[in-house]
Design a protein around this nucleic acid. Sequence first.
DNA 1: GGTCACACAGTTTTT
DNA 2: CTGTGTGACC
Length: 613
Amino acid sequence: MTDNFSILDHLNPPQQEAVTFGEGPLLILAGPGSGKTRALTHRAAYLIKKNKINPENILLLTFTNKAADEMKERLAKLLDHQVTKQQSSSAAKLPFAGTFHSFCARILRIDGRQLNIPPSFTIYDTTDQREAIKMAMNEVDISEKQFKPIAILKTISQAKNELISATEYPQYARGLFQTNVAQIYLVYQKILKKHQALDFDDLLFQTVRLFQKEKQILTKYQNQFHYVLIDEYQDTNQAQYILTRQLVGKWHNLCAVGDASQAIYGFRGANYRNLLSLKNDFPDLKIINLEQNYRSTQIILDAANEMIKKNTNHPILNLWTQNGKGQLVSLYEARSELDEAAFIIKKIGEYLFQTNDFSPADFAVLYRTNAQSRVLEEAFLHASIPYRLVGGTRFYEKKEIKDCLAHLKYYANPQNKVAYKRIEKLGKRRLKKFLIFLKKSKEKNLSTLELLDKILKTTGYLDLYDVKNKDDLARLENIKELRSVATEFLDLTKFLENVALFEQEYPTSLEASLPSVTLMTTHAAKGTEYPIVFIVGLEEGLFPHSRSLLEKEGIEEERRLFYVGMTRAKRKLYLTYARRRLYFGQKSTNAISRFVNDIPSHFIEFANENLLE
DNA sequence: GGTCACACAGTTTTT
DNA sequence: CTGTGTGACC
């Protein structure tokens, strides 16, 4: 099985072409379900095994840790490696595979000194950033009521994505709001510097600046990474785009994989045009289309194809499959959001209880906004069908976790004023005890877990929670979970790095292990697949969302989102909309989504007739 | 220093 | 409707 050619087995001709493509820039346009990750990992494996490229000379960049982990795992399998979570890519025989952010953090810890970034810098997450923004606003005397800190933060983040520094920003600032942002931006950066902190955007921005300023450092990394492979290239922002160009500037061995039709993160700075402009950047760019789909039925693909064709701003792949035609797409018109939920329960019930072919895990319900989940949850609870909600508050964003981490962060870096303020808020007495403890324990070489336990004990933090209270118990459980993460990282710095850049697999509770119907936003559904998919709330103003109706670009992104949703379905797709809906306590009557009308009617059957009593 | 009431805002999300 | 965050009050 270690035979080189086994890597090419079970790959279709365009996939093989992508995998065996030699030197030079390569763009793989990969439709949904076309084996994109497969092509990418196989290509890396092929480079290593067949072309005898040293794994250390290959760089794999992704957007999420989940994707990076999957790459590593698949690659290890292809290379017959044993990888455990502990050693992961440090085992030297696998290429570096990680997110842009973790890659940049690594570079800045090594070479950031050139930009006066201390190697032990702290990474500020969104909550930390907000606190720092508030401090900055306070300092320049701009009221939080006049301008919302979050809005300021968003604007600064956008500027950083566009590689506009605090000193450059004033010259671009137009109008009252941006003039204020300009002032705050400068002070915000000053505060970050004083705290020895970088925010997520800084990780990218500072790395780009480092490469611009110190050519010999850029050359060092160019010489290390002869081959750069990037997943989901349509999701790159300007900073990531420039960074990529810097990295591949010497060898031009870029392999980018993506699909403009699945670009759904424009709102956070992603620009799918980066994918299209590769042609201009590299005149010798080789483009390979992966259009054979292994996931869905032909009817689902045809319906999705025809729908997405209404977009004119980007090229569209023509998906086809050897799977059968399959069933028509079902459309249900509900009277209300309750009726919509009832329909879904009824349908899932039929599959589950009238046949033996389905498990709850075979179903997904996709919605546009999180606020829609409640009604669905209640219906599932009522019907006793197990469900799993994807999303919600993320583990490291939870209050109790942030509280614990604040202590550890301050311990690691007393410059971290945001952490200090957070601890202070928990009570002056606790703070005092903590500070005394800090002085006493500095010399002792404590592991992360020992440290955490001692802090919890001396400050009496756990006393805030009552074991008999259900919510409090959940919080205590979360802290337990954090303790178990702490056991994995003896070194506090390593632990904090992990916390800042890697989301915990979560939850590990009982219900989650039971086969369950998945409820999630359509965004969260990207990259997943289910035999039976329901997309709900297909109404004008909801999907497409009212906030996107103004510009064409907004509508096109919503359409791509719907396309992503449709192409999650393997066997059967249900679309539903409600004539009347209660949303945020407000009644509304909406027209059916234009996207449903974009699907040719011969792919659709109406589910209502079957329900008439 | 801690609790409670009121105002208020509410796409989408990863790092 | 509901979670969050701020400010007033004990």
